[in-house]
Nucleic acid binder design. Structure first.
Length: 640
DNA sequence: AGCACGCCGACT
DNA sequence: GTCGGCGTGCTC
């Protein structure tokens, strides 16, 4: 008789021991009786150590579902590591790692047919000298991490397209991670010119069946390039020869809620196991990545200083509006852009119409009853929306506090900007790109296609517009109310602000020299770096700041969150955590109320640990603080 | 995560 | 007297 440890896709780290007369390969899907119902599990390992005292009964595996294992030993190792490092149940990591259909009982045929290969060599541009040098320097044979740090429009994509071609020629696959779902579709257009029918996409907006098919086709090498968002970090990489993480600075590679994980860090971990190269690409790399590339030399650093066609970087100016939504200067520039049939991009860092509604008489602010945040006024849908719990409320006619009818809206959202532009510039084509308009697949696709075809005069949007759309006709970029980035306490606020501005500014002037107007007042040290396009200078100074404050990359943070509908319980749980940590010798902040102290009717308290020995700290937490009604966020990027 | 079990409050 | 709220505990 053989004994196997089986893992289920439930919120448990524990595996369960089953027996079988058959010899089962590690990673196979099996059907077993679990708690009196049939369930699909994954064989993690063969075992001989069984403690009969702990287990009432060892049940027999009912059947082996497929002809081959569903996951490799490397992926099992990755799941174990992710669970340990991110303090999340192994079963939940497993659930994230496979398409949901893999947990249904139907057998899967993993038998490989012939490997597809389609390359249209005519569609590759010739690399310039700067690009060529990087292309030739990147070693595809072994594990190494390469940062391509290139100004926007310098042709980073073209370099990895050439490398992907080489990888495919050698019979291997390539995985390309992008930050947003809409980008997978834009990239698909570009990639399919070169790799025709062998380009797959993988993200959470696919239907369960689509997701399963894309996952399977990549595994079987019927698709050779996979464009995915962070959930693609767990796809089968047994035949993969290159991993690209585009816009590596993007926050969306980190999943905040359980199971929390950072797709970028996990893929570097996997690449090391698999001995394959990783490319990180960005115009504004994170302080952490740049530090590893320039100081500790864990990563290789490649810089692209020139834009393709030798087009100059745009002129950046600061201009604060007086009483209007946009300064007179911006309005004049917009008029000129429309006359010249160019596209103008306007970044507004908030969706909806206004930031909030306020009573003009008593100052009452309309807040979400479930979350302690102000409600955002949406004129299009005629309601007040909470951006944290997504609930919607009717617009009150009078103030609930003083019954006044004098209700005003404060702040500018994408909708208000759109309305302002329609009123001031008449009959022009304006498109809005934010989470509200991009939520339906067709809509987002139409906006992006129209943009690429140059059919739009003005595009108004949130940071979504700054993520990698190559639109030749954009010559003017206006960045409005960026100060809100500083509203929440975050040691990365400066970095987020500068990188968002540089990224957005980079949308301008791909063909001829463009203009950028920033309608905010920023600390002068930041303004200087921005005007001079000196992101590297900013990074160097920021590294010194982080060092003096012992912040990442010089330390690791772990955020411990206590959430409960009962405020007393939330407080008790974090207090208990405090008592345990008090004598641990670790340095930490708190416990305090979170900056947003109620979300979805749950009261929130947190403690933030700062540690120079992450593994020692993880070990302590695993031993002392797990299963105490706490949430953990290792290497957090947001603190609200 | 499910799902059963169990112990109190508001109805026909 | 019963239905059903969701707190606790277990799954090889």
């Amino acid at each position: 008789m053989n004994y196997y440890n089986v893992l289920f896709n439930i919120a448990l780290s524990k595996s369960f021991t089953y027996k079988s007369t058959q010899n089962i390969e590690v990673g196979s899907r099996v059907l077993v009786d679990f708690n009196n119902r049939k369930k699909v599990g994954i064989v993690l390992e063969k075992t001989t150590q069984i403690n009969i005292d702990d287990i009432k009964e060892i049940k027999e595996i009912i059947s082996i579902l497929d002809n081959k294992p569903v996951i490799t030993e490397e992926l099992i190792k990755t799941i174990n590591f992710a669970s340990y490092y991110y303090l999340s149940p192994r079963g939940l990591i497993l659930r994230n790692a496979l398409p949901s259909k893999a947990f249904s009982k139907e057998p899967i045929n993993f038998e490989k047919n012939s490997i597809k290969k389609q390359i249209n060599h005519q569609k590759f541009f010739n690399l310039n000298d700067e690009q060529k040098k990087i292309y030739e320097s990147i070693d595809l044979k072994i594990f190494n991490v390469n940062l391509i740090f290139g100004v926007t429009g310098s042709g980073k994509t073209e370099i990895f397209l050439h490398l992907i071609r080489d990888v495919i020629e050698k019979g291997k696959n390539a995985l390309v991670l992008v930050p947003e779902i809409v980008l997978t579709n834009q990239y698909k257009r570009v990639f399919e010119e070169k790799f025709l029918d062998t380009v797959g996409v993988y993200h959470s907006q696919l239907t369960p069946k689509q997701k399963f098919l894309e996952w399977l086709m990549f595994k079987k090498q019927e698709k050779r390039v996979l464009l995915g968002t962070r959930s693609a970090a767990f796809v089968d990489l047994s035949d993969t020869g290159l991993i690209v993480i585009d816009e590596e600075n993007d926050d969306s590679y980190k999943q905040e809620n359980t199971p929390s994980y950072n797709a970028k860090d996990l893929l570097i971990y996997r690449a090391k196991q698999l001995n394959i190269p990783v490319i990180l690409s960005s115009a504004t790399p994170t302080v952490e990545t740049y530090y590893k590339a320039s100081i500790t030399k864990k990563f290789k650093l490649f810089k692209l200083n020139n834009r393709i066609n030798n087009c100059e970087l745009p002129v950046i100016e600061f201009s604060k509006p007086e009483n209007t939504l946009l300064s007179i200067k911006s309005q004049e520039y917009i008029k000129k852009s429309i006359e010249e049939k160019q596209t103008c991009a306007i970044l507004v860092n908030r969706r909806g119409f206004a930031h909030f509604l306020i009573c003009g008489d008593c100052g009452y602010i309309f807040r979400c009853p479930n979350c302690n945040v102000s409600l955002v006024y949406h004129k299009k849908t005629k309601d007040l929306k909470c951006h944290f719990c997504e609930s919607s409320f009717e617009i009150p006619k009078k103030c609930p506090n003083c019954s006044s009818y004098n209700i005003k809206d404060v702040g500018t959202g994408t909708q208000k900007m759109e309305e302002f532009l329609r009123e001031n510039f008449g009959n022009i084509n304006i498109a809005r790109l934010d989470r509200d308009t991009a939520s339906s697949k067709k809509n987002a696709y139409n906006i992006v296609s129209n943009l690429l075809d140059g059919k739009i005069d003005i595009i108004v949007g949130t940071s979504m517009i700054s993520k990698g759309y190559d639109i030749e006709k954009i010559n003017l970029v206006i960045i409005s109310n960026i100060e809100s980035i500083f509203a929440l306490p975050d040691f990365r606020a400066d970095e987020k602000c500068v990188s968002l501005i540089i990224q957005t500014a980079g949308r301008s002037g791909r063909k001829q020299k463009g203009n950028v107007i920033i309608e905010s007042k920023l600390p002068s040290r930041l303004e200087n770096f921005i005007i001079n396009h000196d992101y590297e200078g900013f990074l160097k100074e920021e590294i010194n700041l982080r060092k003096s404050l012992n912040y990442p990359p010089f330390s690791h943070l772990i955020r411990i969150l206590s959430q409960n509908t009962n405020e007393k319980v939330a407080k008790q749980n974090i207090q208990l955590c405090f008592e345990i940590l008090k004598n641990s010798g670790f340095s930490f902040l708190g416990p305090t109320k979170c900056p947003i102290d109620k979300i979805k009717n749950k009261y929130r308290y947190h403690i933030i640990i700062k540690t120079n020995d992450i593994f020692k700290t993880l070990h302590f937490i695993t031993a002392e603080l797990l299963d105490k009604n706490l949430n953990f966020d290792v290497d957090p990027i947001s603190f609200f």
